[in-house]
Design a protein around this nucleic acid. Structure first.
Length: 466
RNA sequence: GGUGCGGUAGCCAAGCGGUUAGGCAGUGGAUUGCAAAUCCACCUAGAUCGGUUCGACUCCGAUCCGCACCUCCA
């Protein structure tokens, strides 16, 4: 049984069979670097991270490309407002983006092409579209794509061209186009663009939004590749237009599978700047939540489902992670006595298969987590009766590492015990030996203030980070 | 108007035509010097109305409600 993914193109789950055996090439739409990304954006990058990690877990080699959109209306406007060159302006947010990815333990992609580094490729692609008769230049100098020329236009979004109601935005934008729905490949220079412009066969200007993804994906992954992802809001127009540009220029199928994640919502509404209900990652971290807790939150609902963000769930995640950490700590303590990995204890035997099978079903993370927690429960119960051997513990620990390669939140943060904490712990042990409970409790409170819980177990006191 | 997604216990969230999903919270108990952790027990759902079926949360239809997209929002 292979890995089945829901393909937006067919609206069905299909088994993932890469064009090149054993190697999945995927293009994941990345951030527009005009501001800090909000966690709604990271929901998408988190879904892509789970996808790539599960592909690797399943034995595929992965080549992932994630673009950085560093030129568009918003970046240009903001850089001019701040009086900074475009590159300098976007650098801040590109750096912030990578810092945030690291906080969330999102694995880096193989390539992060920036749009402004691929202008020649975009121009070449537009020239090809001219040659093939899909592009035309309007009076203002801009170049448009004629959607009427491309028979497959609308196949991804399943547009009913007749039933389309022109939105307010179309009306303002219809000036020189053959068809109001035609989209820009190249935008002629306007003074508002400042010094952001490139020379092209059609005069100075800058690329349209969709062309960068077509140019960069085909350059780095080939004219046909396996998976293209993004948020559901990208289905139309962005991905539809990418297909039109790419397939018209090459005559070949573009991406084989299209995967789209649902929104992150706050109070039932899409997170957006206009509603003022968005949160950046740094803001959440400043409130004292950890990247790990946010990772768990963003990962714990199925990717095609909308995910309701709430601080209350971050609290719940903290408790759930604590349960996992408690279990793992127990395993590690036992594993310290064994060197070679032995057989898994019976209660952990089916976990890997159950976990993998759940994710094979279009990344059913809930099923995978249920398998994990069931095992923790079974393990706690079994170990309370009969301790496992060091060799078995090593086997469980290895399994945990293997699953963490997919989940990225199983490994507890390092806990370094400072000397004064260690001293307090000893003093408390002495007080307890002398049955001086008042002193013992006082020291426990002192430790709590330093951020540590102490637990008295049959094997002696154990420290845990609060 | 077109297209798509969804409504599951206090909250979050899955699978499944009949057999306990899971997490968090809550209650009672075991354990503990007291705790913590853990275990045991309890609480235990399927928007509404029809239909199919021996049997439906699961399939079909209708209705209601919520959300999103319909030209540069992940």
């Amino acid at each position: 049984m292979g890995f089945k993914v829901y393909n937006t193109m067919s609206r069905c789950k299909e088994e993932l069979i890469p064009l090149e055996e054993g190697h999945v090439r995927m293009y994941t739409c990345g951030p527009t670097v005009y501001n800090y990304a909000h966690i709604g954006n990271f929901r998408a990058y988190m879904f892509e991270d789970l996808l790539r990690r599960h592909l690797k877990f399943s034995g595929f080699q992965v080549t992932q490309v994630q673009n950085l959109t560093d030129v568009d209306d918003k970046t240009i406007r903001a850089s001019i407002e701040q009086g900074l060159p475009l590159k300098e302006y976007t650098k801040t947010y590109i750096d912030a983006f990578f810092a945030d990815l690291a906080k969330l333990n999102i694995e880096p992609a193989e390539h992060y092409p920036a749009a402004t580094d691929f202008i020649p490729e975009m121009i070449a692609l537009i020239e090809k579209l001219f040659e093939k008769g899909y592009a035309y230049q309007s009076e203002d100098g801009s170049v448009y794509y004629s959607i009427d020329k491309f028979a497959g236009y609308g196949k991804l979004a399943r547009l009913d061209r007749e039933g389309m109601q022109s939105g307010a935005r179309v009306a303002q934008d219809e000036y020189d186009k053959d068809n109001a729905a035609d989209f820009a490949l190249w935008k002629a220079y306007v003074p508002e663009d400042g010094d952001v412009a490139w020379d092209s066969p059609w005069g100075r200007g800058r690329p349209g939004w969709h062309i960068e993804c077509s140019a960069m994906s085909m350059k780095l992954l080939g004219e046909s590749f396996d998976i293209h992802t993004g948020g559901v809001d990208n289905i139309f127009p962005h991905h539809e237009d990418e297909i039109a540009q790419s397939e018209a220029s090459t005559g070949k199928p573009y991406s084989k599978y299209w995967m789209h994640c649902g929104y992150l919502v706050v109070d039932g509404k899409k997170m957006s700047k206009s509603l003022g209900n968005f949160h950046t990652l740094r803001e959440i971290l400043d409130m004292g939540y950890t990247g790990r807790e946010v990772r768990y939150e963003l990962l714990s609902a199925h990717y095609r489902q909308s995910l309701n963000f709430a601080f209350k769930s971050l609290e719940a995640n903290r408790a759930a992670l604590k349960r996992l950490d408690e279990f793992y700590a127990k395993i590690k303590e036992t594993a310290a006595g064994g060197t070679e990995a032995g057989d898994l204890p019976e209660w952990a035997g089916g976990l890997r298969d159950r976990f993998g099978a759940a994710l094979d079903d279009d990344l059913n993370i809930s099923g995978a987590l249920a398998a994990l927690f069931d095992t923790v429960h079974a393990g706690n119960k079994a170990m309370a009766e009969v301790p496992i051997s060091g060799e078995q513990a090593v086997a469980v620990s290895n399994l945990w590492n293997e699953l963490d390669a997919v989940l990225g939140f199983l490994m507890p943060p390092e806990e370094e015990v400072s000397p004064d904490v260690a001293e307090l712990l000893e003093a408390r042990a002495a007080a307890r030996a002398a049955k001086d409970w008042a002193e013992s409790d006082r020291i426990r409170d002192a430790l709590a203030e330093l951020g540590w819980t102490v637990k008295d177990t049959p094997d002696g006191p154990k420290l845990r980070k609060l």
